[in-house]
Write a protein that binds this DNA or RNA. Sequence first.
DNA 1: TTATATACAAACATGAATGAATGTAAACAA
DNA 2: TTGTTTACATTCATTCATGTTTGTATATAA
Lengths: 206, 206
Amino acid sequence: MARKTKEDAEMTRQRIIEAARELFSQNGVSKTSLEKIAKHAGVTRGAIYWHFENKTALFHVMREQVFLPFIDRIDDTLLATESEKNPLTRIENFLLATIHTLNEDQATRQTYEILMTKCEYVDELATVLQQILNNCSDITEKIEQVYQDAHRQHLINPNHSPVDLAMDTHLFFGGLLHMWVKDVEGNRFRNQAEALVKAHINLRKK
Amino acid sequence: MARKTKEDAEMTRQRIIEAARELFSQNGVSKTSLEKIAKHAGVTRGAIYWHFENKTALFHVMREQVFLPFIDRIDDTLLATESEKNPLTRIENFLLATIHTLNEDQATRQTYEILMTKCEYVDELATVLQQILNNCSDITEKIEQVYQDAHRQHLINPNHSPVDLAMDTHLFFGGLLHMWVKDVEGNRFRNQAEALVKAHINLRKK
DNA sequence: TTATATACAAACATGAATGAATGTAAACAA
DNA sequence: TTGTTTACATTCATTCATGTTTGTATATAA
């Protein structure tokens, strides 16, 4: 077949990733063959094997394309001390921003669905679990710092330790995200996710 | 092959379920063939197809064998008003009892691992998500009732509504269970799960 | 005692899915 | 202009999983 320009090649690579994400979220990772992905992207399997070592590598790239930017954006809302002075509001905004991205960005939504309900963490994918645990630790630590701010500013009950509060918030939000993803109909969690976040933060206020 | 007695047949059926659970939790549902399950159970695929319609049916039976008894046991700790008077302690005991079962009972532990990280909710398994959502609603409602008790007994902040508290606790625990399962090493969440539960309940106390 | 249903094992047929090898036309560098 | 690399398409070989069918020895009912 005709060789493409570098820009064209990058476009097909991107189309393959998008096709994979779409089919993974529809039919699950293991039931999505490279043949189906290729057809959906308008190429053949040869193209996929050119751009990616195998299905697992494609999966990892797909995941990173959503999560690496997400990690970079965390500090923007969580540690944005100039734009938002109140620490509790900053935590609330961080959680709400994540929900908002899920609602607005299809790629993010599909990737969360895949990671939470459409893939099996075995063999080469088992390492992803460890990465998730690491990310969670990082996020929890950052939330803890913000709770320490709130503690210093006497915004919360002084008996509650920032460590406990941070872990509790993180676990709450992890649970919420899982239910958000599972609630495909949208009438149980997706439609009231923001209210649940605000209620959670309200439980902390004095 | 020689026909077995009814008791023998029931034993092989049970061995098939156990083999499936073990292999599902090790290698994931989709990568576990009926051939492997059969070998691990000491039978041939013929035996599996005799006792179960297909792999999906076997999966459902495996799941129900752990979750139907669990649902039955909920009221024992959560609504045991005679043995434990304090509503907050009853909620705490319920959460701790679940963690305890995960630690002690291998079948329960493996089933949770399968449902959370080793299967893909597509096609026939997609219905399981709906069942999970329904179970969660039931549990949340029961927790809410206990929080209402706590409210009436002035054990918690009167500004906090039992509905919000129940949902918050449920999401917290869902998140904790997910992290518990993912923390295979055991040094991040599994070893401090009880402490996290107690800290969560403590956040409610006056 | 015999007929039948049971509880499987064994064999068969079919359909993917993967990975590797090979082919090829056009982009790009020299 | 030409040689080389790129960006795929095509074909091939192999493995593996499922579902079905058939065979069969025995528990059990009549």
